[in-house]
Simulated assay, not measured.
Amino acid sequence: METELVKGNKQEEIKRNTSKVYFFIIAIAALVVTNVYFYVKFKSSGEKVYALTVEKENLEVEIDRIEAELDKMKIENVQLSPPLVEKELDARNKIVDLRAKLARKELSQSDIDYAQSTITSLKSEVAYFTLDVNRLIQENKILAEKNDLLQKEVSESSNKISDLKNSNLNLASKVNVAAALKVSNIAVYGLQEKRNKKLEIEERAKRVDKLSVNFTIADNTLAKEGKKDVFVRIIDPQGNLIVNQDGNTFYAHGEKLQFTFKDSLQFTNHGEEYTLYWTGDNKFVKGAYTVLLYSDNAIMGRSTVVLK
């Protein structure tokens, strides 16, 4: 009896131990399943975050490329039309908005999808914008070439006009020179005025009262008829120009000259003879007096008288 009781107790203890083992096995299995669940869950979540991060970086690279394309247009230094300026501003505003959204710490897949869609649209817009700008650059180059050609033609025309003006000036100068009056003969005499007011030629300096300049103007078909001013320069025996106190001047051959006196005559272009008189402020002295006649900015002729 005692033996059977012991056997029953042992069997009962074995059953309890077996139950405990099963419990631990079931608990361990549940723990393993839970760990596997959380491992898979966290692994999936980590991969998703990593994937979103990679996509975000790729999108930022795309945005950088788009912005670089816009900046390239500025390097071209092209004056954009108002519509193109508006397109560029719109694109840059979208870039700023995209960068702000991608800079947020928590991004969902929908945020990434929206950004991707916006970038695709932006790429298309910038592509068309680039085409428009390149077309504008080509048009500007063509206009610049045409402008250079036009400037060259204008410059050549200006040079031709300048050459023509110079030619006309040279011709006019030659005509003026050719039209200047010239004397065919000229003679200077010393004159003494007698008591009866009669003038006689005198060679002795102390008796000379005035000089007489007699000349004939040669015919000139290029010279205009009419009143002519004649400027007279008289050089005394000491080689000094005799001038009055006013120091009057005129121009001849492009030079400014002083004159002794001037007179006017009527040019008829018929070989007329003329006589001019000059009375000095001082007594005449012995030696040679040289007389030069000028008209129309050129010398007409010269002659010398020697007083004894």
Rank of each mutant, 00 (worst) to 15 (best):
Y189S: 13
Y189R: 12
Y189F: 13
G190Y: 04
L191A: 02
L191K: 10
Q192Y: 03
E193P: 01
E193V: 15
E193Q: 14
E193R: 07
N196P: 04
K197E: 10
K197P: 00
K197H: 14
K198C: 04
L199G: 01
L199Q: 04
I201W: 08
I201E: 13
I201D: 10
E202L: 07
E203S: 15
E203P: 02
E203M: 11
A205V: 06
A205I: 08
A205P: 10
A205L: 11
A205Y: 13
K206I: 13
K206V: 14
R207P: 04
V208Y: 00
D209L: 04
K210I: 05
K210P: 01
K210R: 15
L211K: 05
S212E: 06
V213K: 02
V213D: 01
V213P: 00
N214T: 09
N214F: 12
N214W: 12
N214Y: 15
F215W: 08
F215V: 04
F215P: 02
T216N: 14
I217T: 05
I217F: 00
I217A: 00
A218R: 12
D219V: 11
D219T: 12
N220Y: 03
N220V: 06
N220H: 09
T221K: 12
T221Y: 11
T221V: 13
T221D: 10
A223S: 15
A223Y: 02
K224C: 01
K224H: 06
E225R: 05
E225T: 10
E225C: 01
G226T: 05
K227T: 11
K227L: 13
K227H: 07
K227E: 12
K228I: 07
K228D: 03
K228T: 05
V230I: 15
V230R: 01
F231T: 02
F231K: 06
F231P: 03
V232I: 15
R233E: 15
R233T: 10
I234G: 01
I235Q: 08
P237E: 10
Q238P: 05
Q238M: 10
Q238K: 14
G239V: 09
G239S: 08
N240C: 00
N240I: 00
L241T: 08
L241D: 06
L241K: 10
L241P: 04
I242H: 04
I242Q: 08
I242V: 14
V243C: 00
V243F: 00
V243M: 02
V243T: 15
N244G: 14
N244P: 00
Q245P: 00
Q245S: 11
Q245Y: 03
Q245F: 01
